[in-house]
């Protein structure tokens, strides 16, 4: 096994265990932390695939922004009042459905003859990405800041409205 292979299996183990943790842990905050761990594991896959920009986006957006929103949502709602998450009364039915789905997916994967040659994947470094973004796609880039501006102003307006109502 090469080093990359070992790293891949370690990352896969980490992501899968964390993903299982998300749905099995009774505490919602712990589940959110497991979710962050799983998403960071996916960032590791992107690095293994030499897509460093995607890895960066994964860490910043999923590991940073999405995780922050989820954690803030939990903090603001006061999770103590929520009942502990656990298997409900419908678990045999859920087991049946998900088990059938696993069998279906596995047979589909095993019976498909995957194409041997999927073509060459072009790797784009952050450097070329930045150059193209700032030379050829300047207007969309500046428009992105306008979209962010709208989001920012929207957040301020909505929060000040709710303040007035309360």
């Amino acid at each position: 096994m090469t080093v990359a292979e070992v790293v891949f299996y370690l990352l896969a183990l980490l992501s899968v265990i964390a993903a299982v943790g998300v749905v099995t842990v009774p505490n919602v905050v712990h589940a959110a932390l497991f979710l962050i761990l799983s998403l960071l594991g996916v960032a590791g896959f992107y690095i293994l695939l030499s897509s460093e920009f995607l890895a960066l986006v994964q860490v910043l957006i999923y590991g940073g922004a999405v995780a922050t929103i989820i954690l803030f949502g939990l903090m603001l709602t006061g999770g103590r009042d929520l009942p502990a998450v656990g298997p409900g009364a419908q678990w045999p039915l859920a087991l049946l459905v998900s088990g059938a789905l696993v069998v279906l997916l596995l047979t589909a994967v095993l019976n498909t003859t995957w194409p041997r040659d999927a073509g060459e994947m072009t790797l784009i470094s952050i450097n070329t990405l930045g150059s193209v973004l700032f030379r050829e796609w300047l207007l969309p880039f500046e428009l992105a800041s306008l979209v962010l501006l709208v989001a920012l102003i929207g957040a301020v307006v909505i929060s000040s409205q709710e303040e007035r109502e309360s």
């Binding site: 920009f53 922004a65 070329t128 973004l133 700032f134 880039f141 800041s145 962010l148 989001a151 920012l152």
Partner: peptide, 21 residues
């Protein structure tokens, strides 16, 4: 949190800017 998210997304763009600078 919302303001953080907006500036977090901004960093994604500025990162490629910093590397290609």
């Amino acid at each position: 949190a919302l303001i953080f998210v907006v500036f977090d997304v901004e960093v994604v763009f500025l990162y490629s800017w910093a590397v290609a600078f």
